[in-house]
C-alpha cells in the first residue's frame, strides 16, 4: 500500500536557522475534584470555606481557598459559609498580564483579609481604587459564570 505524504504542513516562520510553527489547540479536561463545591457556591452567590472538624487539631479557623483535608492533621474538613466582608491586605494593578488573562489590563489584584479565616484569598477589585486596609465586600458572577475563581470579586463596602 502506498502512503500519501501528509496533506498539511508545518508553517515555516524563518528559514535560517530553519524554524517551524508547532501549533497547540487542544483543551485539558480539568476536574476540580473535591474543591468543585467552592466553584458551585460562587455560581449561587455563596463564599464557601472549609473548617477542620477534628477536636484535637489546633487549627479551627476557616480555609479559603478551601481544602478537603486539614494539612495539620489530615482529618476531613466541613464546608462552612465564610463572611463576605473583609479588608484589602495588599494589592497590585497589573498592566502587563500574561496571555490567558480574561480581565482588562489595569485590573487591580487584591489579597483579602477576612476575620476568622487563616489565609488571605487572592481575588480582584471590581470597582473603586485599592488601598491597604480598605473595607470591601464580595460580589458574585451569578448571571454568566466563568466557573473559575474569576466569578468572585470585591467592591468597596
Amino acid at each position: 500500500m502506498a502512503i500519501d505524504w501528509p496533506s498539511t504542513q508545518a508553517e515555516v516562520f524563518r528559514e535560517n536557522p530553519l524554524g517551524i510553527l508547532n501549533a497547540k489547540t487542544w483543551s485539558h479536561y480539568h476536574s476540580y475534584g473535591g474543591w468543585g463545591r467552592f466553584f458551585e457556591g460562587l455560581r449561587v452567590g455563596k463564599l464557601l470555606a472549609t473548617q477542620c472538624t477534628n477536636q484535637q487539631c489546633g487549627e479551627h479557623r476557616l480555609w479559603l481557598p478551601p481544602r478537603c483535608e486539614c494539612p495539620d492533621c489530615w482529618h476531613e474538613m466541613a464546608w462552612r459559609e465564610a463572611p463576605t466582608t473583609g479588608r484589602i491586605f495588599t494589592w497590585s494593578t497589573v498592566l502587563y498580564p500574561g496571555e490567558l488573562f480574561r480581565l482588562p489590563p489595569e485590573t487591580s489584584l487584591i489579597s483579602v483579609e477576612i476575620d476568622g479565616v487563616c489565609t488571605k484569598l487572592m481575588s480582584y477589585l471590581k470597582d473603586g481604587k485599592p488601598e491597604i486596609g480598605m473595607p470591601i465586600k464580595a460580589v458574585f458572577n451569578t448571571k454568566k459564570p466563568t466557573n473559575t475563581i474569576l466569578d468572585l470579586a470585591w467592591v468597596p463596602a
Partner: peptide, 12 residues
C-alpha cells in the same frame, strides 16, 4: 485553581 487566572503573571 485559585490563582493563575488572576493575572497569569508572576510579576503581579
Amino acid at each position: 485553581d485559585f490563582e493563575s487566572e488572576l493575572g497569569w503573571m508572576y510579576a503581579a
